[in-house]
Design a protein around this nucleic acid. Structure first.
Lengths: 185, 185
DNA sequence: GCCGGATGTCTGATTTTCAGACAGGATATA
DNA sequence: TATATCCTGTCTGAAAATCAGACATCCGGC
């Protein structure tokens, strides 16, 4: 089934985040905006932070699935940046009204989810050891987490694309190398 | 509850009607477009003609509720025309692939529903006899049915607004008179 | 005349949504 | 400090919505 109700809750939340910071949004606000019972919110989401994760994780997941090849990693990231810029107000409302711990926890989960999806998509059935998987994920997550933190701190005004471009020049894409070095034949 | 599923079915139907005539749209097409079970369609709608009625009746109802005063009847009708013009392709796809009986039955029901809502809104608690109500409804329905039929037959290209304007000049709005003549004090 | 696909109807299982109540926490107010 | 208020998260059990699957029927193409 298509979960129209869940989607409606997400949409209302985004709508409200366009209007005011996260700290001024209650569960009741969300459910009364879309006209569902408060319990229905808790049926789908543990709490508001989980709702945030859900929204951004799913968005990223969709984008990742569109670029299953390592050659297209650049295009994939570009689309993620576009997507983030489109939601700029929403993201900054969240960023500015979430405390450090919550923010880090949240961003880390989003990165973790996106990168797991990304690696699954890239590996596409190939197997590597748990250990290696962990190492690669840690590398990617740390880098992503840092990049995104920097960007958010600048109010998403930094030209993240050119920064990334320069990073790519300095340090060529090594993902495929890493994977093939780890691959169990 | 807000019936997101029902809305999704309606939306899919409209989407498909934008693409092709009614005769080429099956229940299965609709439900697979929005990803719900075929039974769910029948849970909400008797069949496709009822779905059509439902869509247009509800649209008209919403518009009517926005204009509860007899003084605003003109603005109300204008908005109905706007709404119809926005859905022009959809309406013509239906009109052109529905047989005469079905079409008349359908249009009649839509008129009936809209005018009942309209009268309820105008009366706003005042009472008139069943007989008088019937007479007024018949008058309005006949006029509406005829106007709309004409318009549809022209491919909705006729300038229905100026026609209506001229009719209003010839035959001043008599609704309020009719109601007060019938009113039970 | 037969077949494939669409329709409308039914059954019963499962999932989703609901109303209502409760304890705990935070906040404001007096 | 005490009290009131609002939000939270959790729990019940009832009700509604959605589902899969089957069936008889009808219709258009072959």
């Amino acid at each position: 089934m298509a979960n129209f109700t869940k989607k409606a809750i997400r949409d209302s939340f985004i709508k409200l985040l366009n209007e005011r910071p996260l700290s001024q949004i209650t569960v009741k606000d969300i459910v009364s905006d879309c006209g569902v019972n408060r319990n229905t919110f808790y049926y789908y989401f543990e709490d508001i932070p989980k709702l945030m994760e859900d929204i951004f994780s799913e968005d990223l997941e969709e984008i990742i699935k569109k670029y299953p090849k390592i050659e297209n990693a650049e295009a994939c990231i570009d689309e993620m940046i576009d997507s983030a810029l489109e939601q700029k107000r929403v993201i900054l409302h969240m960023y500015n009204s979430t405390n450090r711990e919550m923010y880090e926890h949240y961003l880390w989960n989003v990165c973790d989810h996106a990168i797991s999806t990304y690696l699954d998509t890239l590996l596409d059935g190939r197997k590597i050891s748990e250990n290696d998987m962990h190492a690669i994920k840690t590398y990617l997550e740390s880098f992503s987490f840092g990049m995104i933190s920097n960007w958010l701190r600048s109010g998403m005004n930094e030209d993240i694309r050119s920064t990334l471009k320069r990073i790519r020049e300095i340090k060529k894409e090594i993902m495929e190398d890493m994977i093939s070095n780890c691959e169990i034949k």
